[in-house]
C-alpha cells in the first residue's frame, strides 16, 4: 500500500467509511497478528489483542494527525497494547498459576495456521519436526522466555524486518539505545539456544 492510497483510506475512515476500515484490516491483519503472537506466544490472547488493536484504530482514527505513516501509528498502538497485556498476564499468572492441562488447551493445533510456530505451552514431539521447524520452535521458545522489552526489539527488527528509523518512531527510543539493547537481546537469545542449535 503506497502513501497516497493510505492517505485516501485514512480520510475515508475519518469520514466514517467502514469499507475503508475493512481494506485496512485486510491489509494489516496478518502483520499485526504475527507481531502480537510472537510477543505473547498464546494464540487465543494474540487473536483477542490483535482485534483490540484494530478496534483502537477505528475508534481513535480522529486522533491520528498523519505526521507519520499509518503503519507506524498502528504498530505503536500494537506495541503499547502488547506491553499492557504482558503486564496484565504476568500479574494474573502470579495470582493464579494455570494447570498444565489448562495451558495446553489454549494452544492451537499446528495445522490451524500454516507456518506458525509451536506454542511454548504445547510442544509437539521432536520426531515429528523437520530440522528447520525444530530450530524455529527452539528459538520461539527461547524468545518467549526473554525479557518483554528485549523480545519486542527482536520481533520488530528480526522477525518483522523493520528499519531502525521505523523502530525509533514505534518504541520511542533513540537509535543508539535501540542498537545496544537489540544487541544484548540477540546475545541473550543466542545464549539460550546455542546448545540446541
Amino acid at each position: 500500500m503506497d502513501l497516497e492510497e493510505e492517505k485516501i483510506l485514512v480520510h475515508r475512515l475519518k469520514n466514517g467509511d467502514d469499507k475503508a476500515f475493512s481494506v485496512l484490516v485486510r491489509h494489516y491483519q496478518n502483520k499485526i497478528y504475527t507481531l502480537v503472537f510472537r510477543m505473547l506466544a498464546d494464540a487465543e490472547e494474540a487473536e483477542d489483542l490483535a482485534q483490540d488493536i484494530f478496534i483502537t484504530l477505528y475508534t481513535s482514527i480522529d486522533t491520528f494527525r498523519e505526521e507519520s505513516r499509518l503503519s507506524t501509528w498502528l504498530y505503536r498502538i500494537a506495541v503499547n497494547l502488547c506491553r499492557n497485556r504482558i503486564k496484565y498476564l504476568s500479574r494474573r499468572r502470579k495470582s493464579r498459576a494455570p494447570s498444565l492441562e489448562e495451558r495446553g488447551d489454549r494452544g492451537i493445533p499446528q495445522d490451524a495456521f500454516p507456518g506458525s510456530p509451536v506454542l511454548v505451552s504445547r510442544l509437539p514431539r521432536p520426531d515429528r519436526l523437520a530440522e528447520g521447524h525444530q530450530m524455529e520452535t527452539i528459538i520461539q521458545q527461547a524468545l518467549a522466555a526473554l525479557d518483554p522489552e528485549q523480545r519486542e526489539l527482536i520481533v520488530l527488527r528480526d522477525i518483522q524486518g523493520m528499519s531502525y528509523s521505523e523502530m525509533e518512531r514505534i518504541v520511542g527510543l533513540p537509535l543508539g539505545t535501540i542498537k545496544s539493547k537489540l544487541h544484548r537481546a540477540r546475545m541473550s537469545l543466542k545464549d539460550k539456544v546455542s546448545k540446541d542449535l
Binding site: R38, F54, I55, F113, G115, R186, K190, L197
Partner: peptide, 29 residues
C-alpha cells in the same frame, strides 16, 4: 551462533490471522 539465530528469526513466516478475524472485529464494534 549469533548469525544462525538471527537468520532463523528472519526466516520466521508471517502468520495468517484466523479466517473470521475481520467479522469478529465488526461484531465487537
Amino acid at each position: 551462533q549469533l548469525k544462525k539465530t538471527v537468520n532463523v528469526l528472519s526466516g520466521f513466516q508471517e502468520l495468517k490471522a484466523p479466517k473470521d478475524f475481520e467479522s469478529k472485529i465488526n461484531d465487537r464494534l
